[in-house]
């Protein structure tokens, strides 16, 4: 839930120009690229000014998460289907609001309403 909220609060952080720069930056691990692009650490606004405190915070984040991955032990094993937290998913998709917002991806969506609204 905490994670879901954080992801929703950082919607603006996805900037395609950032991604184009990050993707071939070999100094960053793929997991770091993902986090930076999603803005899940203090460095998200690369263009904006960021103080040294923020950089320190980012380092802390990095070390904590990396350790977590090592504990997991499965960091380097390939998965075609990512690991989902099914409790979070159940909460997300039992919420009628989320289902309604997803409805525009289905043919059952009411196109007239969408156009008017």
């Amino acid at each position: 839930m905490e994670k879901a909220r954080r992801m929703h609060s950082t919607q603006k952080k996805y900037r395609i120009s950032d991604f184009a720069r990050l993707i071939y930056d070999e100094s960053l691990a793929p997991a770091e690229v993902v986090r930076k692009w999603r803005g899940e650490d203090g460095m998200a606004d690369l263009a904006d000014d960021h103080g040294p405190e923020e950089a320190v915070e980012e380092d802390e984040n990095f070390f904590r998460k990396a350790k977590h991955n090592d504990d997991d032990g499965n960091n380097n094993e390939d998965r075609l289907i990512p690991k989902y937290d099914y409790d979070t998913l159940a909460q997300k998709w039992s919420n009628p609001e989320n289902l309604e917002s997803l409805r525009q991806r289905f043919t059952t969506a009411n196109l007239m309403k969408e156009r008017n609204g």
Partner: peptide, 26 residues
């Protein structure tokens, strides 16, 4: 989907094998 570890790895692997870089836009 694009911003997933799998695809970032794929982009880098493809480049290592001599493919040209991906262009991305909204």
């Amino acid at each position: 989907v694009l911003g997933s570890e799998t695809l970032i790895c794929l982009a880098r692997d493809l480049k290592a094998f001599g493919a040209s870089g991906w262009g991305v836009r909204d």
